[in-house]
C-alpha cells in the first residue's frame, strides 16, 4: 500500500483516505449527449491516473462531474472523502483544473488570466508563478490573444501547476505542446506527485498517457472498459520487431527459429526482412539472433492500445486479437 504523506496547505480538510478520487456507479446522462454509465473508479492518493478514450467517450464528463460543473444522474463521486455535490467547494479547494479547450478572454494578459482564474485560491504564490513561467518560457505580460496555441497552453499549465493543489485534473493537457514542452510537462507531473499531489489526466492518444501515468483507465462509450497498471499492461502488450540478417540464406533459418520461440507470433519474411510480434521477455529472441550476423534489428515501442485490446480479447475468448 502506498504510504500516505500530507505536505500540502490543505492538510486540514484532506481526510486520511487512501483514495484521492472514488467514483461508485457514477452515471451522468443528459439530453442526447452521451455521458458516463456506472463508472467505478478509484484513484489512489499520489498516483497519476490516465483516462483514455476516444472523443465523446466520457473523459471530460467525468472530470466536470468531479468539479460539480455538472451533476451526476446517479452514483457518487468523492474527492479525498468529500462529496463532489454536497461539498463541492471543499473539493475544488483541493483541485486545479485544466479544461480540454482552454478558452479565456483574449484581451487579458497572462498575469490577468492567472488573477482572474485563481483569485479564490489561497495556495498560489507569485514566486511559483514566475518560476513556472520562466521554466516554460512564456511571457505572462503579453495578451493571451497575441500568443500562439502552444504559448496559450503554457499559460494553462501555469494555471494548473502553480497552485499547490492536492489533485490536479488535466483534460487533454498536452495538446498543442511541442516535444520539448511535453517533456517539461512530464517533469511537472512527476514533481507534483513527488510533492504529494495526485494527478488525473485524460487523452485520446494512449502513447501520451503511457509515458506519464502509473495506471490507465480506458473509457469506451461512457463506461470503464479496463483499468490497469501501465507496467502490467506493457508486460502484456505485444511489440513488433524487424530483423535483417546480413546473409540472405539465414532468413528462413531465423524465421523458423523464431516461430519455435513460445512468446513469438505472426512471423513472416519478405524483402530480406523477418517480421514478427513478441510478448514479455525478449531474452530468448536475442539469444537466438546472437547466432547470426544481423545487419538491422528494430524492436517497436510497446503500445498500450494493443495491450488494452488484447485484454478485451481475453474477456471475449479472442486472445491476442488486434483491431
Amino acid at each position: 500500500m502506498r504510504q500516505i504523506t500530507v505536505k500540502h496547505p490543505y492538510a486540514r480538510i484532506v481526510s486520511g483516505d487512501q483514495f484521492a478520487v472514488q467514483a461508485a456507479r457514477l452515471t451522468k446522462t443528459y439530453g442526447k449527449q452521451r455521458g458516463i454509465l456506472d463508472v467505478d473508479l478509484d484513484v489512489t492518493r499520489g498516483e497519476v491516473l490516465g483516462l483514455v478514450g476516444a472523443n465523446g467517450s466520457g473523459k471530460t464528463t467525468f472530470m466536470r462531474t468531479l468539479l460539480d460543473l455538472i451533476r451526476p444522474t446517479s452514483g457518487t463521486l468523492n474527492v479525498f472523502g468529500h462529496s463532489s455535490t454536497r461539498e463541492s467547494v471543499a473539493v475544488r479547494k483541493l483541485c486545479t483544473y485544466l479544461p480540454g479547450d482552454f478558452v479565456v478572454p483574449s484581451r487579458l494578459t497572462g498575469y490577468q488570466i492567472l488573477r482572474r482564474y485563481s483569485f479564490a485560491r489561497d495556495n498560489v504564490r507569485a514566486t511559483d508563478i514566475d518560476a513556472l513561467a520562466q521554466r516554460l518560457d512564456v511571457d505572462l505580460s503579453r495578451r493571451v490573444g497575441d500568443l500562439s496555441k502552444g504559448n496559450k497552453q503554457k499559460v494553462a499549465l501555469v494555471l494548473a501547476f502553480a497552485p499547490r493543489a492536492e489533485l490536479i485534473v488535466l483534460d487533454e493537457p498536452t495538446s498543442g505542446l511541442d516535444p520539448i514542452l511535453q517533456r517539461i510537462f512530464a517533469e511537472l507531473v512527476n514533481e507534483s506527485v513527488a510533492n504529494g499531489a495526485t494527478v488525473l489526466l485524460s487523452s485520446h492518444v494512449m502513447s501520451e498517457v503511457e509515458q506519464i501515468a502509473h495506471r490507465v483507465a480506458l473509457l469506451r462509450n461512457g463506461s470503464i472498459a479496463i483499468v490497469d497498471d501501465v507496467a502490467a499492461l506493457l508486460a502484456r502488450s505485444r511489440r513488433r520487431a524487424h530483423v535483417r540478417p546480413r546473409v540472405a540464406a539465414d532468413l528462413s533459418v531465423i524465421a523458423n527459429g523464431l516461430a519455435d520461440v513460445p512468446n513469438v507470433m505472426e512471423v513472416s519474411e519478405s524483402d530480406g526482412i523477418v517480421t514478427f510480434a513478441c510478448q514479455g521477455s525478449v531474452d530468448p529472441i536475442l539469444k537466438l539472433l546472437a547466432r547470426f550476423e544481423i545487419e538491422q534489428f528494430d524492436l517497436m515501442h510497446a503500445d498500450l492500445e494493443d495491450a488494452f485490446f488484447a485484454n478485451e480479447g481475453d474477456s471475449s475468448g479472442q486472445v491476442g486479437t488486434t483491431p
Partner: peptide
Amino acid sequence: EDRTLDLLLAQPLA
C-alpha cells in the same frame, strides 16, 4: 457560451 465559465467556477467558489 464563450466557454470561459468552467475555469472560473473550477475555483473554490460556491
